[in-house]
Design a protein around this nucleic acid. Structure first.
Lengths: 249, 249
DNA sequence: TAATCACATTGATCAGGATCAATAAAAAGG
DNA sequence: CCTTTTTATTGATCCTGATCAATGTGATTA
């Protein structure tokens, strides 16, 4: 059996996370969720050197588009992003949402150009990791390569699950699955698993789940009538997680 | 006890293509599509040592299931496979089809167990690549790591495209897109881009595209009436590829 | 603070594709 | 080879979720 990673959740100081964009990997509260996991101290320092800490992006601002050639992968430092791809006639699909510690742009390295458009969902910041430099480092740090492979593999299995959702689940099941996925990710990051603020619009959610906005709205209302959740705009609280789990299938 | 370890060489003359499972990477006709691409000759020899050539699988036979722990990735040598994942209540989704030179099991390395079930669609064979050994080799061959990353990334972008298909395309668009994807993959492998045999059932296709069998059948008939394709069971020929392209969106 | 604009909810109606049903055609198996 | 089983096609009907429409609720800006 090949055991690759053990991303244990935990981080404490929210304030740091939000505001100190220059914070080095060594002191970053995302350490356990991020790329450096498993690196030795001296290797970490080297990784730290190649990472560019970037200014924040405001809601709706673009991180990259399919027009740009691939140079870097991005790790969310604070806030959140969405990626979309489009048909030639302008319909588009929200392929993923990204939270702190998650990698954006991994699907780009094959074609050497970004395969999707990435936009901030709220005021957010990222660490930019130039891929060339990362590969150079990787030659001397197998652990880093493994980390990277592991991330790609994780995204891959997430995508397969979404295929199952898109292809085989009903509207109710889709939304239940989505809410639990958010819950898990918030709780992995030290936030409440049952009460959180969603920063994506109903439209984004609907699009991501292959539904119409109206359907999402109706399912939210129905779940609320049944006492499974409470919503107030962007505030969501899951009142009966166990029951919601049974809805996911 | 007489151990019969390697019978294959005895049959060297029998259709190398299909049946010589012991054929080394150096002589393999899939070279350009496969893992070794870009490796130096001596590195290739080393890679060759860790690869296990496996007996063939018959239609419907299992390559691996979600119950098994992850040890190896598999490269299709001949034939084809499908992978599926399932909901807790038994609905399942065909997540991908795999052709010669393509890698199966890449989504497994994150959780160290296979995330899907892989089955042969016809009499097929694979090369088994033990992941531990591959990682060891990778330490000395950056090119190999890059190849691996590249493959993961490629699968990732394929999956994103499928999300777009599942979430935003109509039945006609789905089937047109699917046919062209097959066409491309056959032509990449030196076969005709316009005439080929599909080895997956209508059910598999329907499931993969998030449709009912009946719908797939009807769309096939409609495309045929419109003179865009000809079908005869598993034989498909694309009569007007340009027009089919316009259907994909 | 009003005015504008983007987003959300709810209702009424519609349609694409699912489901049900029957038959036909291939495979598989004895 | 004939029998049995699986897979494919075609038709009739139904239903989930899309679309259209109207109103409500927040946000942003002047």
């Amino acid at each position: 059996m090949v055991q690759i990673t053990n991303i244990a959740p935990l981080f404490k100081d929210m304030a740091k996370l939000e505001h100190d964009y220059s914070l080095a990997c060594q002191e970053c509260s995302l350490y356990r969720l991020c790329l450096p996991l498993g690196l030795h101290h001296k290797d970490l320092a080297q990784l730290d050197k190649i990472i560019k800490r970037r200014q924040s992006y405001k809601r709706g601002e673009t991180l990259f588009t399919t027009e740009q050639s691939f140079k870097s992968i991005y790790v969310v430092r604070s806030g959140s992003f969405k990626t979309t791809i489009s048909t030639s006639n302008g319909r588009d699909q929200v392929t993923s949402f990204y939270f702190p510690g998650e990698f954006i742009g991994l699907d780009a390295l094959y074609q050497a150009s970004y395969q999707s458009n990435a936009k901030a969902l709220e005021t957010s910041s990222v660490c930019e990791v130039p891929f060339d430099a990362l590969q150079e480092l990787g030659k001397e740090m197998p652990q880093l390569q493994i980390q990277l492979l592991s991330r790609l593999s994780k995204e891959l299995s997430g995508d397969k699950s979404l295929m199952l959702l898109l292809g085989k689940k009903t509207a109710d099941e889709k939304l239940a699955t989505f809410l639990l996925s958010l819950s898990k990710r918030f709780s992995d990051r030290g936030f409440s698993a049952s009460e959180f603020q969603i920063m994506m619009s109903r439209g984004d959610i609907a699009n991501h789940l292959g539904l119409a906005v109206e359907t999402v709205s109706r399912v939210f209302s129905r779940l609320q009538e049944e006492g499974l959740i409470t919503t107030n705009g962007k505030e969501i609280s899951l009142r009966d997680i166990e029951k919601i789990k049974t809805l996911c299938l």
